[in-house]
Design a protein around this nucleic acid. Structure first.
Lengths: 215, 215, 215, 215
DNA sequence: TATGAATGAGTATTCATTCAT
DNA sequence: GATGAATGAATACTCATTCAT
């Protein structure tokens, strides 16, 4: 259901390299740095990852990092931007597929939460990695959040129209139902475990919640 | 339903202070330090709160902190231990009350999650505060988690016996239903807002999930 | 003629230490740091003097420097402030003495220029030391400059009144004569050499210039 | 009186470029670099001017700078050498002119000091620009200083011979008078202001000093 | 010649912790 | 117990210089 579970371990597929076409070397290095950074951030947390460490892991000199990223914060931001882009891609892919209500909702939620889970939340330093996120410019995640919510809303509306669910039966407006579903789904992040366990958890939450919304 | 909303601002009610009886000054100082620390951690986050700041807020010298707590981490751990104790108290209080299924489940969840929300999660630095938590010794929250789960399990079992819910109808074992309910409830933490909004969110999640478990 | 040529090598005589009376240790350390800093600044220039070097020379840890001075710049500023205070002291001393015109003018100029020469200008890095000076808050040197000029002006006026000099004979107003004398005196800084040579140069400039102002 | 005020803005008039005749491009580039460097040094100071900045201003790549100058210091030295050459030219021009004592002395001093004032001293970063100068090999300014002193000495001697001045009357040997005049003249640099103000100051110093040397 | 990507030594500053008083 | 002066390890960032192309 996750569009690109198979490529989850690599960043290269998104060629966000500078001066595209001229020197693939630069692109490779930029990617290498980002990969090293993501690995180390996940392994050691943000503050405990020294630029020096990232440089070594990426096999470049410390100063080279600053050729590609103005600062440690900007490196982190670039990472966030990449992840956001990937989530958006997955959401777009889901939008094109014709799925029954529950599968659609699950796919949407998995596109967003699953991706984060894979990259960030499964790290023991997830919390620290999300802390700087709070300071990131809103334009990184806001658009993704927007389409995410829009898709979810659309799916629920279709479910109502098809008579599959009826928020009023549970005393909720459609918006309230959306927010509740969303919040509950976020809870799937908790509990740790493998990605499969996460997805199982998410699926069950969706199942129960949609059942709770039945007419 | 919130057992002790009125005392939420004080830590003193838990007389876990050492050397009790000899020098109340010491106990007071320990408490003063913890209160100052909790305030500052919530306000500024863990790393951005310097020991110097805590000392000043508690009106003691920096060195004094180390008379009561071996390190900054240990101070944080003591805080966590205190919060855990408070959650346990609330859970015990809920256990004694006779409530219908949904109210009981909600009370149990609120005792645990609500407390954290009040103290930690409502802080803009929640993420950072939970990061060190990951490193805390398991014996702090494990017992609380244990009785928490036990109570929830018991409530659900009674619900099954009373015919109010039937996990099998949703294709789940009782344990799976418990985990799912729990995970979904955790999701209430997300979304920010006031404590009232948090509780509203939690209530809705419980409502939907229990509805989803109906026979 | 130089009020305190004998104490030129020590800063201690100005007890600008903090928390005076409580712990002379702190005062000593502050002075030790300033002495070390002045020595190193003179020897190696501002930028090439690392805080680490100053700390070692003062026999304290690097962090200790920051207990007494907020930053390298502030340390430099404190030094400047001290020097300015010392010049002011010397000027005040000269003001109390009753001297013939030429001696008076020379004493005034020596109080200001001589002091700088001793401390700063005789360093091979004089220029670099004066560069940051440009960024210092005006309130450090402005008052000193003010009384310096005022004293010089007063001395010249008395000379005019006594018929010893007559700026008009050289086609100058008294103010123009003052500025010219002052500028010429500054020239004594150039040429290097010992302090004695500097003073000899200054004396000759004063002699010639005052002769040039004779009626 | 300023020999070449009109050409003050350009360095090209001194064809000291290497590889002359083969590739004027090279010469042009060398000149372009020096012009860019002088501009930036004056505007931002020595240390705050990055080689990268110079390269950009000169429209060449950073590495190209090192084809023409071994190091940043050597670039600065080349600049100094050029300025020294220009002063020498001006001095030579003055030597050929037949002028009365005071005008001659002023012209000589202006040739040297005025030139520096125009290029260096009038910069807010003068102090910093003169700091590296201290480390410059003596052969750059020593010859200029030599002929400068020689010319001044010759002028004074003629003044003595003509009965216009008499150092002995002021208790000085001719050499001492020379040194004193020279030092006083240097003082004209201080006080900032426009070039006109500088020249006014210099003229007054010369006037007063020569008056002081009258029989 | 010319380029510009890559290098890495150099440095100010913070803050948890210690310990003499 | 209480203090707070002293410590020093840890770390992001700059920029002159090199060198493969």
């Amino acid at each position: 259901m996750a569009a690109r579970a198979g490529t989850a371990g690599k960043l290269k597929s998104t060629p966000a390299a500078p001066r595209e076409g001229a020197k693939p070397v630069g692109a490779d290095k930029r990617v290498a740095i980002m990969e090293a950074a993501l690995d180390l951030f996940r392994a050691n947390g943000y503050r405990h990852t020294a630029m020096e460490d990232i440089a070594q892991a990426a096999n470049v000199a410390k100063g080279t990092l600053y050729l590609y990223f103005k600062s440690k914060d900007e490196l982190f931001e670039a990472l966030a931007r990449l992840l956001a882009a990937r989530v958006q891609e997955d959401l777009d892919a889901v939008a094109k597929r014709d799925l029954p209500l529950q599968a659609k909702v699950l796919a949407i939620l998995d596109a967003k939460l699953g991706f984060f889970y894979r990259w960030i939340l499964s790290s023991p330093h997830a919390a620290e990695l999300l802390a700087p996120k709070a300071n990131l410019p809103g334009d990184i995640f806001d658009p993704v959040d927007g389409s995410f919510r829009a898709m979810l809303s659309k799916a629920l509306k279709e479910g109502v129209r098809a008579g599959e669910i009826d928020p009023k039966a549970a005393g909720l407006t459609l918006d309230a139902a959306l927010e509740t579903l969303l919040a509950a789904a976020y809870g799937a992040e908790h509990g740790g475990g493998s990605e499969a366990q996460f997805r199982e958890r998410l699926a069950r939450i969706v199942t129960l919640t949609l059942r709770g919304l039945r007419p």
